[in-house]
Design a protein around this nucleic acid. Structure first.
Lengths: 344, 344
DNA sequence: CTGAAAGCGCTAACAT
DNA sequence: ATGTTAGCGCTTTCAG
């Protein structure tokens, strides 16, 4: 069978405690003893049993990440960044997909599901929203991601949705566009706290500051934020005959779909319509034309989220710090779809 | 502290064994007893400690997945499918990224790294190749993915690279193309066993069968298979002045980059050049024009791989089955880039 | 600096 | 049908 510490101890001629000391880099071990233990470990091919360690220490060295779907580009890139960030802290990442399903999202927060073998959870909800805030009462280290829910009792890492959307709109204004359409508004009209609404708000704010009236006809619904819906919304907009010379798509995937519909309709980008998306996913750089976008600071989001989670994991029971809300820095990335000739 | 089975047993007025029986759905428990235990569990908010269970049973209920990078579309979609497949078997998935780094890939196979808390590993190497076959001697349940290594001592799930590439080329031949370029050949010339070489072989086979000589000028190197490299290879090809009316890009990402370069050069697709990619990633459906591709059977790969791994995990020591090699079914998906008007 | 021994929470013989 | 009990492999007091 697989060797245990006892085997190592026997081979090295020391006690099990000494083996433990060596493995955990405890200070007081005589170099010669350490060497003997190390070579015994080598000889036997010993590997610590992490279940046993986890049982004893209460830590597994694994954190959970719950996202809607990895096949959505944004989440794949987020997961990529989070796994890298976790690695720096020597943590593994168990990825769970909720498929944007309400029940599964609830299971994730309540610690049911598969994520019990973890020391904490990074959770990016898609379906749960402000009304479900009270559900978020996790009894374990937890960091909330995204903008579906605000004001909960946990740490929260998100982006500057309003001001970055405002900046995106201003970017279109700066290149002389005045009839700026938006694609991706939420079907139901009441303003909630979710990416769509926040970004629409930033759009309106930019128009307001420029003294341009908001034309409701230019605000188009699209959900979910997939390519087909972006394309469809754009086809509708074109068919409606409403004039427009700029487009702010609420994410890159919608923008890519819209680009497709614009191309089909013979509308030139950026000449006839300048387009900017949101998220700055990899493919934005390589679409035809390349897509201007808002980089929401994904890297920073990932690193911050993992750091916060690690702090919560390490926190002693008494010294609870009040929940933190962190917003990452954003950046407008100008590419061909808004007239920038350079590549970026 | 978090409640244990003992607490549940005390509250329910039964022994710990009975609690265990209830939790594990053992047959012989009186309904009334079961009810009492269940309500005690509810009342205390008891959750089994998976570390303890893992220590006792030797199983963690988690499998590892080692891929180069999630931000590469193909792997994100693969991981998505694998997580779904694992779920059906009630398994969690711990995702590790090797970044296509040799050392890290070795660490993954040898069971170092973060994947020790797992019951087995699905491994998709990028850097390790045929020469490293001897390194693949894992001492734990293991399933190899992809085509970097063949003939190892483990189960292996892969695709029909040669025949599907042949079919892709034939698809171009069928629509009348005769000067078919290929993008994505490997920089070093010797034929190894890796996707690039296998797919080039299928291409040559198709040309041979059609009685068309292979023109080395039409076989273009590109590595790694990223958009920029596809675009660059296409720019080179166009600049070289070599005539061509068809393109087989060895994956979709290269194809998308090539599409971009073709567009920039004013070459019409599919009129001047028909293009087919490989992988059938989501975005192939939404590029302009939509991209024909080879669906390698990703779903099937994921499900098969997980099933094989589960079998290896459950296998008794004595009854070892010889390693299996499984190849998924592929399918040509014709879209606009090869003249298909319908959407698919 | 090293050893002995307790016990983390659970499962599975074995007993009743 | 239910209870008792012995570890799984490790960390960690506590002694020496």
């Amino acid at each position: 069978m697989t060797p245990t510490m006892h085997d190592v101890a026997r081979v090295a001629g020391v006690s099990i405690k000494t083996v433990s000391n060596v493995i955990n880099d405890f200070p007081h071990v005589r170099p010669s003893t350490r060497m003997r233990v190390l070579s015994a470990i080598e000889e036997l091919g010993y590997r610590p049993n992490l279940s046993a360690r986890g049982l004893r220490s209460g830590r597994t060295g694994v954190i959970g990440l719950a996202v809607p779907e990895l096949r959505q580009n944004y989440f794949a890139e987020l997961a990529d960044a989070i796994i890298r960030a976790a690695e720096k802290h020597d943590l593994g990442v168990l990825v769970e997909q909720t498929s944007g399903d309400r029940e599964r999202e609830i299971a994730a927060v309540t610690g049911a599901g598969r994520l019990r073998l973890t020391d904490g959870l990074l959770f990016s909800p898609e379906r749960l929203g402000q009304d479900d805030r009270d559900l978020i009462q996790p009894k374990f280290p937890f960091v909330l991601l995204g903008e579906r829910i605000f004001g909960g009792p946990t740490d929260h890492v998100t982006m500057h949705n309003v001001s970055s959307a405002q900046a995106a709109t201003e970017h279109l204004l700066e290149i002389g566009r005045r009839r700026i359409a938006i694609i991706g508004a939420h079907p139901d009209q009441r303003e909630e706290i979710r990416s769509a609404d926040l970004r629409v708000r930033g759009y309106k704010r930019a128009l307001g500051a420029a003294g341009i009236p908001v034309d409701p006809q230019l605000i188009r619904v699209a959900a979910p934020w997939h390519r087909e819906n972006g394309a469809e919304a754009m086809r509708d907009l074109i068919a409606s005959g409403v004039a427009f010379d700029g487009l702010f798509a609420l994410n890159d995937t919608l923008a890519l779909g819209a680009l497709r519909a614009l191309g089909d309709a013979g509308v030139r980008v950026p000449d006839d319509v300048a387009v900017i998306g949101f998220d700055d996913i990899d493919e934005a750089r390589y679409s035809i034309p390349s897509l201007s976008s808002v980089d929401p600071g994904r890297q920073e989001i990932a690193e911050t989220a993992v750091e916060l989670l690690v702090e919560r994991i390490n926190e002693k029971d008494g010294e609870a710090i009040p929940p933190l809300l962190v917003k990452s820095e954003f950046r407008i990335v100008a590419r061909e779809s808004t007239g920038s000739t350079g590549s970026s």
